[in-house]
Design a protein around this nucleic acid. Sequence first.
DNA 1: TGTTTTTATGTGAGTACTTACTTATTGTAC
DNA 2: GTACAATAAGTAAGTACTCACATAAAAACA
Lengths: 175, 175
Amino acid sequence: MTEKKEKILKAALTLFTNDGYNATSTSKVSKEAGVSEGLIFRHFRNKEGLLNAILEEGEKQAKVLFADIVMESEPKEVIRKTLEIGQVMKKNPKEAHFWKLQYKIKWETERYGGKKMEPLHMALRNAFEKLGYAQPAKEAELILINLDGMALHFFLDPDFDLEGQVSFLRSKYEV
Amino acid sequence: MTEKKEKILKAALTLFTNDGYNATSTSKVSKEAGVSEGLIFRHFRNKEGLLNAILEEGEKQAKVLFADIVMESEPKEVIRKTLEIGQVMKKNPKEAHFWKLQYKIKWETERYGGKKMEPLHMALRNAFEKLGYAQPAKEAELILINLDGMALHFFLDPDFDLEGQVSFLRSKYEV
DNA sequence: TGTTTTTATGTGAGTACTTACTTATTGTAC
DNA sequence: GTACAATAAGTAAGTACTCACATAAAAACA
């Protein structure tokens, strides 16, 4: 990975996340990266290839983030850690960039996100099962739906009180 | 409102909702509407004006949709009707178009959606208060966050089981 | 009423500029 | 000196938007 290639990736992540994929031209990316436009196509073949490279990098980061939750054996801890994913974003802005980009791309291009949440879903299902909940699968799905809803507000509504909502949920689940 | 003006609005609603705002050119809209491109600018001044016209029309529809919930006096009915908003979308595809566009625009352009959910939030807050919940405001916010999460899956995940999730939530709130 | 004048609606070709992408050429490290 | 990194200068197609002009509808006046 050359230095300029990394600069392209960084610039594209910023611009795609802030302005959106379609609203960001390869020319803008090259200027932001301080690089000739042609270099983008040499390294990534086309604009979509650049997007895919960023998305793949984000997926790797997500796996690391999820690993800690999936490997947790204490069911209440699984739920608590899941609910607190948002706090991680506040501390780690690059992780937040990747997440935000996921949602932006999902809505802008409607390319289906794949099954990358599946391991988390499984871990939650098992946790709720161990805790004796009547419908563990639905409970797990509800938490993930909640996470998506909170992400919308966290990323797009500057007045959203993330911590307040998370602690409210923690008290609901007693975790 | 002339016939051609309405055709432009209809075509733009479809294209903006399916392909996104930035990915839809005024030329595409004019072709879909069977109208000269210049007419778009005669009626709406620019592309953003066209978007605003559609958004305003959607806001009117949303007010009608919310009115029925806000005026409901039975607290459990307020919650049930709110949870069942998604079912309305399934029956009324044009309403669904407007909703989907709201989310697409929100993520694509990050223009703040305004306070159009405020009356619904209020109604829910009062409902939870009457039912003796400890934190009615947080409960109301949670329901709206849930709605946003379900919307993501409803519009973008073809396998999402909306009815299953809604009836699960209804059983949770006993409504 | 019929005629003229104004206004609203509509077109199609053109504007300057941007888009994603290509190609030919040069720099550079081993 | 070869393989790769990088650039500058292109390309054709597309972009939002404008303009001069045509037609239809409405208003004003005789």
